[in-house]
Amino acid sequence: AEDTGVRVELAEEDDGKKPTIALKLWVEDHKKLKGKYKESGAIEFTFDLEKEVPEVVAQEMVESGFFQESDAKTVGKSIRDRVALIKWRRGRTAAIVA
C-alpha cells in the first residue's frame, strides 16, 4: 500500500469471522498531511468490514475535529488500504482451509 503518512493497524487480533473489527489509526508522518492533526495519539474505532465505507469514517474523523477536510481523502485511503488487506488475508485463509 502507498505510504500516506497515516498508519492503520488492527487494534485486536482478527479471528477471521467477526464482521466488525477494531482498528487503530495514527499519523506516522505529519509532513504528508496538508492540515494539522489535532491529536498526538492514536484513534481507535470499530469498523464493519461488510457494511461500512472507509471514506465515511474518515469524514466522521474530520467532523469530530481530528483532521482537517483537506486530509479526509488521505485518511480514507489509509483505512481503505488496511481494510482491503484484512479482507484479502481472510479470503486467503478461507481458501487454504477449503
Binding site: 498508519r7 493497524e9 487503530k24 495514527w26 506516522e28 508522518d29 505529519h30 509532513k31 491529536e39 498526538s40 495519539g41 492514536a42 484513534i43 481507535e44 474505532f45 470499530t46 469514517v57 466522521e60 474523523m61 467532523e63 469530530s64 475535529g65 481530528f66
Partner: peptide
C-alpha cells in the same frame, strides 16, 4: 496512560490513546 473519547453524532466512538511505542517517524 491517558485515554480520551470522542463520540461522533452518527454514534461512532473514537478512543484516543498514546501511539504504540516506537511507531512515530518524525517525533
Amino acid at each position: 496512560s491517558a485515554t480520551s473519547q470522542v463520540v461522533h453524532s452518527a454514534g461512532r466512538r473514537f478512543i484516543v490513546s498514546p501511539v504504540p511505542e516506537g511507531r512515530l517517524k518524525d517525533q
